[in-house]
């Protein structure tokens, strides 16, 4: 395996690119996932407060 990850003199540029790539891709994915979870929880709490808004026929299980 020696040399497989050896980028030679250009190592800072190559690893810098991949480092920033991982940070940006993972960062946005995490933020998007978290926001979806937070809004889902907020919506569930509000729907519990305003149950008359639910259309029971459409939810099927009546929950």
């Amino acid at each position: 395996m020696t040399g497989v990850f050896d980028m030679g003199v250009y190592a800072p540029y190559v690893w810098g690119s991949y480092g920033i790539g991982v940070l940006l891709l993972a960062g946005l994915a995490y933020q998007s996932w978290r926001r979806a979870r937070i809004t889902a929880a907020r919506l569930a709490a509000l729907e519990a407060k305003a149950p008359h808004r639910r259309r029971r026929r459409e939810t099927g299980d009546g929950s």
Partner: peptide
């Protein structure tokens, strides 16, 4: 990746819109 993250973001946006609508309704009530 684009499809995955787009689905998360669209879900969040749709939920946020329903949250705002329900909040308005509760305030009016």
């Amino acid at each position: 990746y684009f499809v995955t993250v787009l689905i998360w973001r669209i879900r969040a946006e749709l939920q946020a819109r329903r949250v705002r609508a329900l909040e308005d309704l509760l305030v009016r009530q």
